[in-house]
Amino acid sequence: MEKVPMTERGYAELKEELRRRQQEERPRIIQAIAEARAHGDLSENAEYHAAKESQSLNEGRISELEDLTARAEVIDVSKLSGDRIKFGATVKLVDEDTEEERTYQIVGDQEADVKKGRISISSPIARALIGKGEGDTVEVAAPGGARSYEVIQVRWA
């Protein structure tokens, strides 16, 4: 069974989604199925089929979340330190072409959200950054072509 690395925040978010889907969504969907059943003929009942599809999607996600939380390897980022980039590090970069600064935290696949500044450990930029330190330059093969970044700061939040 392969462990899935994630931060404490990411683990808490998955547990909350699992709780919500089991305790709120599941009963709501069951109620919707019961109401749709009461309307009679199920073969042409769009509400019934929509509710059953919703149930299938919800149960699939519940199974996925149960698997992920069971395999989670929760890493307490506050206990990490060092001058080299690894999982959990918050890294400030500057694009060497545009001089644009960006800050990313390297997190597990399930909690990655570029809009919130969290990139997956398996993303091309994170893989290029692992093992680097302040002042190092990294080349990243991006979809729009190769990008070059300089590491300005490595911190542990």
Rank of each mutant, 00 (worst) to 15 (best):
K132Y: 08
K15P: 02
E73M: 10
S120N: 08
I130H: 06
A157G: 11
E17S: 15
M1Q: 08
V114K: 10
D83S: 15
E8M: 11
S123Q: 07
E8G: 14
I75N: 08
E44C: 00
R71H: 14
E73G: 05
R9P: 02
E139W: 00
I29Q: 02
I130F: 12
A157Q: 12
V74A: 06
T69Y: 04
Q55A: 10
V140N: 02
E111T: 10
E134N: 07
E25M: 12
G60Y: 09
K52T: 13
G133M: 03
E150G: 02
L57M: 14
E17K: 15
R28G: 06
E96A: 01
F87C: 04
R127K: 14
L68N: 11
K15F: 00
E73H: 09
D41F: 09
A70H: 05
L65K: 09
R26H: 09
D76W: 00
G145S: 02
E66K: 15
D41C: 03
E64M: 12
G145M: 02
K132P: 08
E66A: 08
P5F: 07
I106G: 06
I106R: 02
A32C: 00
D41R: 08
A70Q: 12
V91Q: 03
Q110F: 12
E47G: 04
K116W: 07
R118Q: 15
E44Y: 05
V140Q: 03
E13K: 12
A32P: 00
K132N: 08
I121W: 06
T103K: 11
Q153V: 01
A38C: 03
S148Q: 03
I121T: 06
G133F: 03
I30T: 12
E101F: 04
H49L: 11
V114E: 13
Q23D: 14
W156R: 09
G40F: 06
N58S: 13
L129C: 04
D109P: 03
K52L: 15
P143L: 04
A38Q: 13
T98P: 02
E47H: 09
R84P: 05
G10S: 07
V4A: 11
E66M: 13
R147S: 03
